[in-house]
């Protein structure tokens, strides 16, 4: 199949960027979208042009390195699929696909489609953990945890930190990412202990990074490769108010 691409090219953080048109004449429906970009890059290299830079690592939808706006949607049109697992069978021969980086003030562009998402690490560093040092743990079965609770915690823990939630949010909010970690740890007895400190610290860090406010569009849930529910954001707010009331 022939695929036309309109790809965002940008030299560096301060340089202006623009969409550039390319054609990949020999695409296959079995290719992943990133393999299509690989083929494009080999083509560009052969023509003496600079390849398109983009981040990717595991290419099986779990590391969260990749993240592109494909045809106007974070990670592209297929639900619950990171762009590395988006296959070209989702497109038609002759399609023109626009590819842009994830955009947010807190995610500055490094080059082309590569952005800096270290703001997420700083949110986790703010308090996205259980303060336990190595060696101090009691037996793993010492505290029983209801299966449903463990399952729900797992649903939130599956966040891959790709940033699609921010990219898709009309406000550029990081609420789903932040809430997923707060909900995951807050549901478990091990993490619940320091829930009030956690939620305050993480929410404040999210604010300091310059992410936008949440307007409950739930666009984040729609693009999340793991389908994490915005109910997590509600529970983050409950935890926040609880912290506020308990001082």
């Amino acid at each position: 199949m022939i695929i036309n691409l309109r790809v965002w090219r940008q030299e560096g953080p301060e340089s202006p960027g623009k969409l550039v048109d390319y054609t990949v004449p020999e695409a296959s429906e079995h290719m992943s979208f990133l393999e299509l970009l690989d083929v494009l890059n080999e083509q560009l290299l052969a023509d003496g042009e600079e390849p398109v830079e983009f981040d990717s690592d595991c290419r099986e939808g779990i590391c969260g390195s990749c993240g592109l706006m494909v045809a106007g949607i974070a990670h592209g049109p297929q639900k619950r699929t990171a762009v590395c697992q988006l296959h070209m069978r989702s497109f038609k021969d002759g399609d023109t696909i626009t590819v842009e980086p994830f955009r947010a003030r807190a995610f500055p562009v490094i080059r082309d489609l590569v952005v800096d998402r270290s703001a997420f690490d700083r949110i986790i560093t703010a308090h996205g953990y259980v303060s336990v040092t190595t060696g101090s743990a009691p037996d793993a079965n010492a505290i029983p945890i209801p299966k449903d609770t463990a399952d729900e915690a797992m649903d939130y823990a599956t966040c891959i930190g790709c940033g699609a939630c921010v990219a898709a949010c009309p406000n550029g909010s990081a609420s789903l990412f932040t809430a997923a970690k707060i909900a995951h740890l807050g549901l478990l007895p091990q993490g619940e202990v320091e829930s009030p400190q956690r939620v305050t610290a993480m929410v404040n860090q999210m604010d300091a990074e310059g992410f936008g406010d949440c307007s409950n569009y739930a666009e984040c849930e729609a693009v999340c490769p793991k389908g994490i529910s915005v109910a997590g954001i509600a529970s983050m707010r409950r935890a926040y108010m609880k912290g506020l009331l308990s001082g």
């Binding site: 953990y129 259980v130 336990v132 060696g135 793993a140 209801p146 299966k147 797992m154 740890l185 091990q190």
Partner: peptide, 16 residues
């Protein structure tokens, strides 16, 4: 033990 203390949500049985 360490992983559970960190909040790793391992699979559980109905008894917890």
């Amino acid at each position: 033990d360490q992983a559970v203390a960190q909040g790793v949500p391992f699979a559980r049985e109905y008894g917890g």
